[in-house]
């Protein structure tokens, strides 16, 4: 039972990652298509203006964003660990058939 659950969870994670990877890759491909000029048969675009830069230029802002990103992932990892503990606790209560007792949403009658 336990291994079955974890296998399924791993499969879910793998599928999710695959989907996200495909999405990001398609976005990247699109961006590339947008940049690369088409075959020479067609008229050259008359000196296309450069796209406005998307990412911040100041190195300081860039660094700050990367630091924030790292911090975000760290806190997500910690949060996931906490959630996991909480899920285990809730599942144990559920298996014991006690889930109705004293574990309703806030505002539920008898809370």
């Amino acid at each position: 039972m336990e291994s079955d659950v974890s296998r399924r969870r791993r499969a879910i994670a793998a599928a999710g990652l695959l989907l996200l990877g495909a999405l990001v890759a398609s976005g990247w491909l699109e961006a590339r298509v947008q940049e690369s000029p088409q075959a020479s048969l067609k008229p050259a675009a008359a000196a296309p203006e450069q796209d406005k830069p998307a990412a911040p230029r100041p190195a300081k802002e860039r660094m700050a964003v990367y630091v924030i990103l790292a911090w975000v992932w760290l806190s997500i990892a910690v949060l996931l660990a906490f959630l996991r503990l909480r899920v285990r606790e809730a599942d144990r209560v559920h298996r014991m058939g006690l889930h109705r007792a004293g574990d309703g949403p806030p505002g539920a009658p008898g809370h």
Binding site: G16, L20, V24, G27, W28, A31, P48, E49, D51, K52, P53, A54, A55, V65, Y66, L69, V72, W73, I76, L79, L80
Partner: peptide
């Protein structure tokens, strides 16, 4: 939260530009 993290990461590294 995992999706949120992925979204933020992709948004930081692959920000869309704007054309002329």
């Amino acid at each position: 939260f995992v999706l949120l993290g992925v979204l933020l990461t992709v948004a930081v590294f692959l920000a869309p530009g704007v054309g002329p």
